[in-house]
Design a protein around this nucleic acid. Structure first.
Lengths: 146, 146
DNA sequence: ATCCGTGCAAAGTATTTGCAACCTA
DNA sequence: TAGGTTGCAAATACTTTGCACGGAT
């Protein structure tokens, strides 16, 4: 079954000279299932294995590197020893920020950017032209603040 | 030779119930030598080895974990495969931001914070109390903009 | 004297790579 | 058919750990 999203993947792959395979499609489906989460490569591997027991871990690693290169996912690092990934949302023009709770470890997202004035100032003072950013806030989430 | 900084280290260690050793002192001296840089554990190991050829790599790894726990260094991650570290500056009340050039790979720093209003908004909208942050900007440095 | 800290080597763990078989285009 | 892709296993590479010895308090 080819979903709309698989269609998008197929186009993107062709456009960049790559082949559309069952494995790549299955991995994208698993990613869609985890929307809003931040899955590790091994977690993805285990999800995909349910329907496709023959898939190899190396394929998932290779695919994530490819999807990152194609701009379909963002690689995340929460310093827990694994590479984690999240799907890039359709109209996302910049990386959103992550709120990491130091108490319970939950990770949530902030849609607001609000870095424009800071990035402008960086251009003026440092001569550095910002094209992207990675922002993580550490602290206490609503539940853990009590 | 015990420098003023080693004195500071000695106090901090004692205060937390750890011992002041030649290795720890030597590693701190190497860190001070690289102020403004972002050294990997192996780089530090190689620097220290010049004066202290007997030091073991594991000691450097263990010491960096300790210094991080004591709040004397910040662990950085530039996704290049190594843990990197920088000394925490004396009056630093928050992590400074890093500017990473996508062209030449250089990493420089921004002292301005300018996240207060964003962090305030995160508290109001998300109920998340920010205590620290990690901010990396990707783009083109002055030289690479040409 | 006590017991933390160290060096060495071995183990651990996430990730990458070589290669023959396979499958997409 | 041609060449990219995959699965498997072996290889990497950074980091951690076990243990006996050494050194700080």
């Amino acid at each position: 079954m080819i979903t709309g999203d698989s269609g998008f993947l197929k186009e993107k792959l062709k456009e960049c000279g790559y082949k559309f395979t069952g494995q790549r499609s299955a991995i994208l489906e698993a990613l869609i299932q985890c929307t809003g989460q931040h899955v590790s490569t091994e977690e993805l591997f285990n999800m995909v294995k349910v329907k496709h027991p023959e898939i190899g871990l190396a394929t998932v690693y290779r695919t994530m590197i490819l999807l990152d290169k194609l701009g379909l996912v963002h690689k995340l690092d929460f310093d827990d020893g694994f590479s984690r990934y999240e799907l890039v949302k359709p109209n996302e023009d910049h990386r959103h920020h992550h709120l990491i709770c130091s108490s319970c470890g939950s990770v949530s997202e902030v849609e607001e950017d609000l870095l424009d004035s800071l990035e402008e100032q960086i251009l003026k003072k440092n001569g550095f032209l910002v094209k992207d950013h990675r922002v993580q806030f550490y602290g206490l989430c609503r539940n853990c603040r009590g």
